[in-house]
Simulated scan of single mutants.
Amino acid sequence: MASMQHEGLLLLFRNRPTLAPELLRDALGLQLPAWSEARVESAELTEVVPTEYRADLVVLLLEGKPVFAIVVEVQLSRDEDKRKTWPLYLTSLRSRVGCPTALLVVAPDAAVARWCAQPIDLGHPGFVLQPLVAGPGAIPVITDEQRARRDPELAVLSAMAHGKEEVGSVIAKAVMAAVGGLDAERLNLYVDLTLSALSEAARRTWEALMQSGNYEYQTEFVRKHVAQLEQRRQEGRQEGRQEGRQEGRQEGRQEGELAALFEVLDARGIKVGAAARKQILACTDSSQLKLWLRRAVTVESVQELFEPGPTRKPAARKAGKHGRSVKVLKPRSKR
């Protein structure tokens, strides 16, 4: 399920395309060819592979022509399907742009980063993909405000990787100093990402600092935004006490519907690709989940599950023992 953290991390690289090659070069020691331009390229990988495959982000380096391409994948948890699709992303992209490619996996969690870094052996002799992983050990700790101003995206990435460490509050202070001159949309996003990445102790320290009035933010806009954010947190706590039980019950029902949907598809031998799984997990509409669950009983492919239109009628039933109806299932054609 797409989360604020996942989408926020992608926006860091989208807002500053040079962040990807700089991480590969400076943090991971990869030799890159000379380039003068970095731009975000289409992440649709449809020319060689099915349309359901889509990378998180593609950054293309150019020196008059494409000289290097980077597949950027944000990984917040283990997902075995990714280890199947990452090699496909690289080979498809290389075929499309006609230049060397590399896989950069951004994993702020240390355990997830270690899992991502495991080699992927494709079976052909010597054909082993070694993902390049930017985990907490590779992402720098940025506490210097001047450096944060030069590269606010890297500063936010530092906060997301190290925010729960003792230095988290100092990193957050550097980020606050850096975002004052940014446009409102980036400022709001970067402040939210930074504060949400802090440990509970660091957040309490930061809240106490705000309430004391001893810290002066760089701009009035930042000051107002952080105050509004704190107000939303306080309101959220109050609403959480009143609505927590109701939300918990709703989430429990949705989790049950998701589990049932995947169980039915699996029992019927219908393959669920990475993109389809992501679409299903992102759904929070209980009525939609129920519709998919009903369709899962009769569809022939996972793509058919998402097609608009009425649910296919179940197969005819015939009488069984004791006069009970017995469903006659039409054999599913092999694909």
Rank of each mutant, 00 (worst) to 15 (best):
L9W: 00
L10Q: 14
T18F: 01
T18Q: 03
T18P: 06
A20N: 00
E22S: 13
L23D: 05
L30C: 15
L32N: 09
P33S: 02
A34E: 14
W35T: 02
W35F: 15
S36R: 13
E37F: 02
R39A: 15
E41C: 09
T46Y: 11
E47S: 10
V48Y: 10
V49R: 05
V49W: 06
V59R: 06
F68A: 00
A69P: 05
V71D: 08
D81H: 10
D81S: 12
K82V: 02
T85L: 08
W86H: 12
P87L: 00
L88G: 05
S95F: 07
G98A: 03
G98T: 09
C99Q: 03
L103Q: 03
L104Y: 08
D109Q: 13
R114L: 14
W115I: 02
Q118Y: 11
D121P: 05
D121H: 08
G126H: 07
F127G: 04
G137R: 13
A138D: 07
R147C: 04
G163R: 01
K164M: 11
V170P: 05
V170W: 02
A172S: 08
M176F: 09
A177C: 03
V179T: 11
A184I: 13
V191T: 00
T194E: 03
T194M: 01
L195V: 10
L195H: 06
S199A: 12
S199M: 08
S199H: 07
T205K: 06
E207Y: 06
E207S: 10
Q211E: 15
E216R: 15
Q218D: 15
H225C: 04
E230N: 13
E230C: 12
R232T: 07
R233Q: 11
E235L: 15
Q238K: 14
E239H: 12
Q242Y: 11
L258Y: 05
E263Y: 07
D266C: 05
R268I: 06
G269K: 04
G273I: 05
K278G: 11
K278N: 11
K278V: 10
L281Y: 12
C283D: 08
T284V: 12
S287M: 11
L291Q: 10
A296N: 03
L305E: 07
R312T: 14
R312F: 10
K313A: 14
K318N: 08
K321F: 10
K321A: 13
S333M: 08
R335N: 09
